[in-house]
Structure formats: C-alpha cells, structure tokens
C-alpha cells in the first residue's frame, strides 16, 4: 500500500491543487485506470479547496491499495452545521473574496458525491470536519 500526505493551510489558494496534482502523478505511475484517476482528481481537488476556503488547516491522506483509493481529508475549522444542506447544489457560505476567484458556486460537495464511490462526512461545529472518500477499481 502507498500512502501520501499533504498539509493544507486555510486561505492558501496558491497551493490548492497540490494534493490532487501529486496524487494524479502517483496514480499514473501506478497505471491506475484513467477514468478512475479523473474521478479521484476531481473529488480530491474539491476537497482540498474546501479546506483552503472554509477551514483553518487540514491534512489530506491518500492511501492506494490494490483495488481502492482512500482519501481522508481532516480539518480544523468551523465545521458544517447542516451537512445535507451543504450537499445541495448552490449552497455556499464562501466569502466575497473567495467568490471573486470563481469559487463558491456550491458545486464542490456535489462534485465529490458524483465522483467518489463512497463519501462520508463527519463534522463537529466549532471543531472541524473529516471527509472520507473511496474510489474502487
């Protein structure tokens, strides 16, 4: 099994995409099916950007085993009070500055749901959020 780890700082949009980009390279080296790589990369990017946009800091862990990619995104942040509401297309609490950059369409979590084979969100308001996604191949 291969494990990758990335630290993400809240507000750091310049580094956003590093975890997904590095993971993509690794999966390509491992000859994972390109459709699976595409799905993984979309969901992972949305997850890491959500930490940058909505949390204070977080760690992304990606574990690749024979037939599965597991991505765990654990952050310290405000948490999500109403997860089913957050999952709705168009729901966003992004700041005006973040929206100006083109984030904040409220499509990130729906993209993650669509692209992952399984998505679990655990969140404690005032403490943080852990998003776990798996991709099977």
């Amino acid at each position: 099994m291969i494990e990758l780890k990335f630290n993400i700082e809240g507000g750091d949009f310049d580094s956003a995409g590093t975890a997904s980009s590095e993971t993509k390279k690794k999966l390509q080296q491992l000859n994972v099916d390109s459709k699976v790589i595409k799905r993984t990369v979309v969901a992972l990017y949305e997850g890491e950007v959500n930490i940058a946009a909505h949390a204070y800091r977080g760690v992304v862990t990606v574990k690749v085993s024979d037939h599965q990619i597991l991505a765990i995104l654990k952050d310290e942040g405000p948490g999500i009070a109403d997860i089913s509401r957050a999952m709705m297309v168009g729901f966003s609490t992004a700041s005006p500055k973040v929206r100006e950059m083109g984030f904040g369409a409220g499509m990130g979590l729906p993209n993650m749901k669509k692209n992952a084979d399984d998505l679990q969100i655990e969140s404690t308001p005032g403490v943080g959020t852990t998003v776990t996604m798996s991709f099977v191949f």
Partner: peptide, 16 residues
C-alpha cells in the same frame, strides 16, 4: 473560455 486570471485556473486545466 474564462475571465479568471489566477493560478487556480491553470491547476484546474491541468488536472482536467
């Protein structure tokens, strides 16, 4: 086609 000019646009284009 976009009017966004920052670095994340490139990150997305590359990933996709």
């Amino acid at each position: 086609i976009t009017l966004q000019t920052h670095r994340n646009v490139v990150a997305i284009a590359s990933l996709k």
